[in-house]
């Protein structure tokens, strides 16, 4: 078994999954909204980046930035449509879930209607160079993916730790009631949160499009993976999401090498079910302190 291949793939997958899962996790713990329109935001960001590359410029960083911006825009859209009107209504958790699912349905069908079913591909953002190290070769897209997502995650986490807006979000994550009592506006914070998580989805969309293509329904599998990783790590915990991303990335890389790519999802879900049976609130989740809707 090629150890280097497994390690590098683990890191790559963990980075992309982590980017997605942290977004889901933050949204749930601060807003109490389970954003299942993530697949739509993902595809929307991909198409935004594609339009930018087609009509404005195909320069790598600009395309990346446009994808991130489109993702943030998609996040704001979902927030305005699914969170703002019903966040103070009875039965919000379940209604929010269904509202985001409805937005997902509408959004992906609109994309299908507008752009057609043919998938699009983005230009090579990180160029086509290769770096040969003893025992392995680093391709441009792998290195670029890892570096970009790590940098973006570090930026977001740094912002959450050291800025006023980040403080508000963290306060909402700890105790939404108390946060609103001390004057943190739920609606304003929700826009920050959704923009940031949307931007993370946009980044992941552009990065993944280096390997896969952009299609209206292309966001579904990443969304389901993200949601299950966030679930496995414990909804609301950034560290948990990172640990789960690494564990599941390792699992995926190992499965690919050992049994074959077909069985990735199967082993992944068996793993998740096992983890959840042992720890019902995820790896980092504590039963009593998890957010109860």
């Amino acid at each position: 078994m090629d150890v280097w291949f497994v390690v590098s793939n683990t890191i790559l997958l963990a980075c992309i999954y982590g980017t997605l899962a942290i977004g889901v996790s933050i949204t749930w713990s601060s807003l109490g909204l389970l954003n299942l329109a993530y697949g739509f935001i993902f595809a929307f960001a991909g198409y935004g980046a594609w339009l930018f590359a087609q009509h404005v410029s195909a320069w790598g960083p600009a395309v990346l930035a446009s994808g991130v911006l489109a993702g943030a825009l998609g996040g704001l859209f979902v927030c305005a449509l699914a969170f703002i009107p019903i966040h103070d209504k009875p039965n919000f958790t379940i209604r929010g879930l269904i509202a985001t699912l409805a937005i997902n349905l509408i959004g992906t069908q609109s994309l299908l209607w507008w752009f057609g079913p043919r998938s699009k591909s983005l230009p090579e953002i990180f160029g086509t160079w290769k770096l040969s190290l003893p025992g392995m070769t680093l391709t441009a897209d792998k290195a670029g993916n890892v570096i970009t997502s790590v940098v973006m995650l570090l930026l977001v986490l740094r912002w959450m730790r050291s800025s006023r807006g980040g403080l508000e979000i963290r306060a909402m994550m700890m105790n939404p009631h108390a946060a609103s009592i001390v004057g943190i506006g739920v609606r304003r914070t929700s826009f920050y949160v959704m923009a940031i998580t949307g931007a993370l989805a946009g980044l992941a969309a552009v990065l993944l499009s280096q390997t896969y293509y952009i299609s209206p329904f292309g966001g579904l599998t990443p969304m389901i993976k993200a949601v299950s990783i966030a679930l496995c790590g414990g909804l609301g915990s950034v560290q948990g999401a990172i640990i789960a991303a690494i564990v599941l990335g390792l699992n995926e890389a190992l499965t690919t090498v050992a049994i074959g790519g077909r069985y990735v999802l199967i082993t992944q879900f068996l793993m998740i079910i096992l983890i959840l049976l042992v720890r019902p609130r995820g790896i980092a989740g504590i039963l009593d302190r998890a957010r109860e809707a």
Binding site: T93, L97, T221, I224, I272, I273, L276, P280, R281, G282
Partner: peptide
């Protein structure tokens, strides 16, 4: 139903959503 006794609410919803996807991938491939 096994995990249903341990998990509650949304954790179960997300898990079953994943299970559905798992079945799809298994039967398609």
């Amino acid at each position: 139903a096994l995990p249903a006794t341990r998990l509650d609410g949304f954790y179960y919803a997300l898990l079953t959503l994943g299970l559905n996807e798992l079945c799809r991938v298994y039967f398609v491939t």
